[in-house]
Design a binder for these strands. Sequence first.
DNA 1: AATAATTACTACGATATCGTACTAAAGGGG
DNA 2: CCCCTTTAGTACGATATCGTAGTAATTATT
Lengths: 158, 158
Amino acid sequence: MLQLYDLFLKTGLRPFAFMSDTLHLEQNVTRSDMSTLLILLFRGDLTMSELAAEMGAPLSSMTSIAKRLERKGYIARATSAQDQRVKLVTLTQEGRLLGKQWESIMLGMLGRLETAFSTEEMEQFTTLLFKAARVFQEGGPLKPHETMTRPIKIKIEE
Amino acid sequence: MLQLYDLFLKTGLRPFAFMSDTLHLEQNVTRSDMSTLLILLFRGDLTMSELAAEMGAPLSSMTSIAKRLERKGYIARATSAQDQRVKLVTLTQEGRLLGKQWESIMLGMLGRLETAFSTEEMEQFTTLLFKAARVFQEGGPLKPHETMTRPIKIKIEE
DNA sequence: AATAATTACTACGATATCGTACTAAAGGGG
DNA sequence: CCCCTTTAGTACGATATCGTAGTAATTATT
């Protein structure tokens, strides 16, 4: 359990730093940049607000990030025809390319996880992870007792 | 599995933002600050280098953080008697107090997890989490997107 | 239709992180 | 001892995030 604190404390400062050596291709581009490109790749063109929401970042931060990415030539911003206020963000050819590069890296990571985990473990892992995330985010007062979903028990190979 | 990407993308930018609302007591102090105080609380007095290592941050960042915390009166830095180069970082009374406050918040979080999870789930969760972390950090060559043998899928009742 | 409120962003300034270059103390031959 | 290397930390500058305060376009209200 102490390990859990440990992971938390490290991850708190430098998100996923523990895997960052592996992700050394992050050269020259921020983590935010990477996230943005990947989101655009997955979700298609989005407005600034939508992007910000997907990223979980404030809109003002999103502006900075977008400006940077535009300067580097990875995205383009065009004002929408229907509503002059909204800007539609699109991947350029280069941006799409870079995004795909990262996608494949992430697939590689995932693949590594999948080779290390059995299928059951994998499912367990994701299920539990999201359950945990849900528990944390839908905060509320710390209740001592709550109904819970039926536990699934499998044996884990170390 | 898409969800996993999702979590990654959000967490990548704003570490643990998904639980940050709950941690609203973070007012006025950085995540790094919090980590630092907690580490000092758990591990006792440390040198700058040791602290940096625990945090997983570069030493130069640690200097900034320490300076800030010193200015706010949460830590004190004293040069070691044996080696004039090293600075020993200590919690002040105030720092210790604040640290304990956060410790109890974290305990609360953990408690919430424990009420939501069964004992088996909890065990599996931590085990899998660390297994995953290990997989990522001691990464091998990581060839992007190799096709790999997919294990047989077994369905698990939720 | 004129005004008020809201929405979708951007600008700007404050503060954070971190790479590189530097300084000073400690250790290690010769 | 003196020089050379290593170690522990700081300084500084570049770049990032993000809260607050604007601005312009849209929608609502009377």
